[in-house]
Simulated assay, not measured.
Amino acid sequence: MSLTLQDIAWHRSVGQLIEALPKPNFWTLLVRLLEQYVAFDSWVVLLFSSEQRPLVFAECPGNDGGPDTLFQDYLKGLYLLDPFYIASREQAQTGFFRLAEVAPEYFEQTEYYQRYFRLNVVADEIQLNCQLDGDRTLCLSLGSTQRFSAEQIALLSLIQPWVIALLRQRMPFEEVVPTAPMPASGVWRTQLETSALQLKGAQLTARELDVARLMLSGCSSKEIARKLDISAETVKVHKKHIYSKLGIKSQSELFSIFLQAQNA
């Protein structure tokens, strides 16, 4: 079996990336290599952890060259509704993941999708995850204004072992700046719980806060019931109590309360 010129070019590029592992322009070189094989419109390298907010190691520049305002909102708290973040916390593992595989049933109907995802990512997203230990996940996320084709997905699946190996080898060269630890109750509960008290004078139970988070992420009642190991009827009761305590009638209003919590 003979190698094609394209095969030789790929292996040579990977070799060059190995040499560039300690260099500041490593991520740019990696992205440029991937762009030769798969078209995408945005990218970001993140470190997910349950103990702190996501850390950004590298990202594509904004249209005006400055920081992306929507992405800053993501880092403040919207990441808690990100299907990829949720999936990495529920079942941490190394691999190649598509939005269609991790998004809840009603994801495209959520306020998160309407107000952030379709404006910032637009159509589709894929993520290459390297599980570093029991909690931390190093992620390379690629966003596109069009759906990734079956051919592109197949190609990324083929080269993912090389890319993930490079992610793992790069990690020792990244400077991880410690941030304030998460509250014991979790940042989600702290944000929404605080806002509910300040804005509505309401106190939600831990289970109601969990149901609220899953609602906002796009989970159906059946999905919430399965994730929390309760019945669908119990989920409906929790939803009723959440709406009643907060004096609201829609998920849109619940999302607004969440936004006020993260911007407080």
Score class of each variant (00 low, 15 high):
Leu254Cys: 07
Leu228Ser: 04
Ala184Pro: 04
Leu246Glu: 05
Ser49Leu: 10
Ala264His: 13
Leu167Pro: 01
Tyr113Gly: 11
Leu47Ala: 03
Asp82Arg: 04
Ser250Met: 04
Asp133Gln: 09
Cys130His: 02
Asn263Tyr: 11
Thr194Phe: 07
Leu246Arg: 06
Arg168Lys: 13
Ser149Cys: 13
Val44Asn: 06
Pro54Trp: 07
Leu17Ile: 09
Gly186Val: 09
Ala225Arg: 03
Phe107His: 12
Leu55Asp: 02
Cys130Pro: 00
Ser250Thr: 14
Leu132Phe: 12
Pro161Cys: 06
Phe40Trp: 08
Thr194Leu: 10
Arg118Gln: 08
Asp73Cys: 05
Thr4Tyr: 11
Ala184Asp: 12
Ala202Cys: 08
Gln36Cys: 12
Val38Ala: 10
Cys60Glu: 08
Lys76Gly: 03
Arg168Ile: 03
Trp43Asn: 14
Leu259Tyr: 08
Met1His: 13
Gln131His: 10
Leu128Met: 10
Arg32Asp: 13
Glu233Gly: 14
Ala92Val: 04
Pro83Phe: 00
Asp135Tyr: 03
Gln91Glu: 15
Ile153Trp: 02
Tyr79Gln: 15
Glu151Thr: 05
Ala123Tyr: 05
Lys76Pro: 03
Ser49Asp: 13
Gln146Glu: 09
Ala196Gly: 09
Ile126Lys: 00
Tyr116Leu: 13
Leu3Ser: 14
Lys249His: 10
Leu142Asp: 01
Leu80His: 03
Arg89Gln: 06
Glu90Cys: 08
Ser252Gly: 06
Ser88Tyr: 04
Phe255Trp: 11
Leu128Gln: 06
Leu197Trp: 09
Ile248Arg: 09
Glu233Cys: 13
Ser221Val: 08
His241Glu: 05
Gln72Tyr: 09
Gly77Tyr: 07
Leu158Trp: 14
Asp124Thr: 04
Ser2Gln: 08
Trp10Ala: 09
Thr137Ser: 03
Val122Glu: 11
Gln131Ser: 15
Arg32Ala: 13
Lys222Asn: 12
Arg115Cys: 06
Phe26Trp: 13
Asp210Gly: 01
Lys76Asp: 05
Cys139Phe: 02
Glu111Pro: 08
Asn63Ala: 10
Thr194Cys: 07
Val14Gln: 02
Pro67Met: 06
Gln203Gly: 09
Asn25Arg: 14
Leu167Asp: 03
Leu214Tyr: 04
Ala150Glu: 09
Thr194Met: 10
Ser50Cys: 03
Phe255Glu: 03
Tyr106Thr: 08
Gly218Trp: 02
Thr205Ile: 00
Ala20Ile: 04
Ile242Asp: 04
Phe26Arg: 12
Leu138Asn: 02
